[in-house]
Design a binder for these strands. Sequence first.
DNA 1: AATCCGTGGTA
DNA 2: TTACCAAGGAT
Length: 362
Amino acid sequence: MNKPVSNKQAEAIASALLDWYASHARTLPWRAPPGRQPDPYHVWLSEIMLQQTTVATVRRRFDDFIRRWPNVRALAAAPLEEVMAAWAGLGYYARARNLHKCAQVVAGELGGRFPDTPQALQELPGIGPYTAGAIAAIAFGHPAVAMDTNAERVIARLFAVEEPLPDAKPRLRALAEALLRPHVPGDFAQALMDLGAMICTARKPACGSCPLRASCAAHAGRLAEVLPRRARKAARPTRVGDAFFITRVDSHVLLRRRPARGMLGGMVEFPSSGWDGQPAPFDDDTPFGLAFEQLASEVRHTFTHFHLCLKLHHLAEPLGERQAAALALPRGWFWHPVGDMDTVGLPTLMRKASTFLREHAP
DNA sequence: AATCCGTGGTA
DNA sequence: TTACCAAGGAT
């Protein structure tokens, strides 16, 4: 059990944190210059992208979205398929579907303006407790904490919270709320993130450079390296599946869009079996009854909760145009130029597979 | 409440 | 190679 935070202690910690932030804040594309309010659309888009995704990755992709869709109305007006393609490679594709849905709600029902309270924000698709707090605090100056893994790590160490995550979440949030300075909630939220990203890192924290080390219980107890504790994660099994390159003599390949829900939901793929290693539709009856040859190379890819070994198959002879036209393509299947695979917006697993297509395409 | 959902970097 | 980790949310 942790002692409650005194006002004096909270003030000392918060002021040290905010002082440090004033001179060490990271400059990021979605942040406003000092003294200016950021665009809520930029804050929202960046926060969705940053969910479980590194700043380095989002840095490379954020500007593309802003250039292409400069405001929430533009994004709402875009076809979902284009948004999914633009999101390709970022992972957690439900984020892209919810991003588009959220844009439509904001642009439509809300007149193009984002709500400014955590409660209202959390009603929107893809916005949970963290993101709601972050947008409310950063974009609107609403007194809310943004409890991401950075904030949780910093707070857990500061107060030497031994309870493992995720059970400790409510306790950590309460401690953060006790430190929150209501006059600068946006700075407070971003200061915790920047400290967690640059000083109070998950591995090898730089306690010697930390503005909070005088107040840090973990530092005093030499516990910084081992906190926060986490429940152990389950081991990842390996699954197998099959993917098929169905090519046409004029250098087109057959692709299809996956169902909206589930793994890689809504994304484009090469026609594939299921991935459970069980006899799938294509294992005993290949697509359209065509004869395939298996490639020597396999694609290995790791998802959140399993490894996948994808076996690749190709036609010995590409289909003639007349043959191809005779195929009854199910809904969502389409021919695509082999030379244009980069613009389809393939998820990474299929992008890896596509590198082997070149060797077997006409 | 426990599980599902991507990807890239790092030790 | 494996395991862990990163500005989490939905069901």
